[in-house]
């Protein structure tokens, strides 16, 4: 039972980070209908940025959240204006292919620059753990979970209660009417895309103390984030949160009780099952 509880909690913790990556993805999809296949690569860029700050400037991972967040905001802005803006409103495949190209490009540019070595950030938080009731919670995971949930909460609040959030929802509903109401869709799209990228980058920072940093790691988060988003319902922020937690726990349980290297299979099977039974996901609108 202890192993079960420990496994579940471990999965829940990492699930929080999955949720953060997926929230960015679902925001971008919900607001402008773009399926971003490079989301995982922005997690990877966040990890490298965090690694560089720690290695060259001795900035610890958590103070690095702010600078990395700002860098990713700029990256998101540039990527949207140079590439993504061209394909907004075009068929799904066009955006998928463009972001797929971007993903291959980013992954391999990093590979060419930094090589395929597995990098680690040296911090004391790595070995620290909270112990209670016979459970051991690695501190890095707890922090990642809590901080990720805070960001997801902030984003939900922004979408629900602020003018900017209302403008984003308006653009998602109907771009033309939003324009008539005095909203500048290009600005809103740029901002929504950049915020989605920031979420991915921040997730990268939170992951750096517990994962190796290497060029291909983005693929892992790309694929997981997609499953999370489909499970939660494409475009739904609460769905992405719940989906992230479920997938985290599921992956952890499959890894412990079935086989460690089969952990992703559980995730994929759930994904195919959702497509069969309830393609709209937990919170999504009905799709036909």
């Amino acid at each position: 039972m202890d192993i079960f509880l420990q496994t579940t909690i471990n999965g829940l913790m990492i699930g929080g980070v999955y949720a953060l990556v997926a929230v960015g993805l679902t925001l971008i999809f919900g607001v402008m209908g773009i399926v971003n296949f490079a989301q995982g690569e922005f997690v990877m860029l966040g990890m490298y940025a965090s690694w560089m700050l720690a290695t060259y400037l001795k900035v610890g991972p958590y103070p690095g959240l702010l600078p990395v967040g700002l860098i990713m905001l700029a990256v998101g802005y540039i990527v949207f204006r140079t590439l993504i803006a061209r394909v907004v409103g075009k068929p799904d495949e066009v955006a998928i292919l463009l972001t797929l190209g971007l993903s291959i490009f980013l992954q391999n540019v990093i590979l060419v620059i930094y090589g395929a070595d597995y990098l680690t950030v040296q911090t004391t938080i790595k070995d620290a753990a909270l112990n209670f009731a016979g459970l051991s919670l690695p501190l890095a995971r707890v922090v990642a979970f809590v901080v990720a949930l805070i960001f997801v909460g902030l984003l939900s609040y922004m979408l629900a209660k602020t003018d900017l959030g209302r403008a984003m929802r308006a653009c998602a509903e109907n771009r033309n009417i939003a324009t008539l109401l005095g909203i500048n869709p290009k600005f809103i799209f740029t901002l929504a895309f950049a915020i989605g990228i920031v979420m991915a980058g921040l997730a990268g920072v939170l992951l750096t103390p517990m994962f190796y940093v290497y060029p291909g790691i983005g693929t892992l988060f790309n694929l997981t984030a997609f499953v999370v988003v489909v499970l939660g319902g494409m475009g739904s922020v609460p769905g992405a949160l719940l989906g992230g937690l479920i997938i985290g726990i599921l992956e952890s349980l499959t890894g412990t009780y079935v086989a460690l290297d089969l952990a992703p299979i559980g995730t994929w099977l759930v994904f195919l099952l959702v497509l069969f039974l309830r393609p709209s996901g937990l919170f999504g609108r009905r799709v036909n």
């Binding site: 590439l83 190209g101 971007l102 490009f105 992954q107 391999n108 540019v109 590979l111 060029p215």
Partner: peptide
């Protein structure tokens, strides 16, 4: 020189084709 160079080209090719000559 570096592994990955050919894939950089791939990615770039894909981006260019999609955005300039779909």
């Amino acid at each position: 020189i570096r592994s990955g160079a050919s894939l950089v080209l791939y990615g770039l090719l894909l981006i260019l084709v999609i955005s300039i000559r779909p």
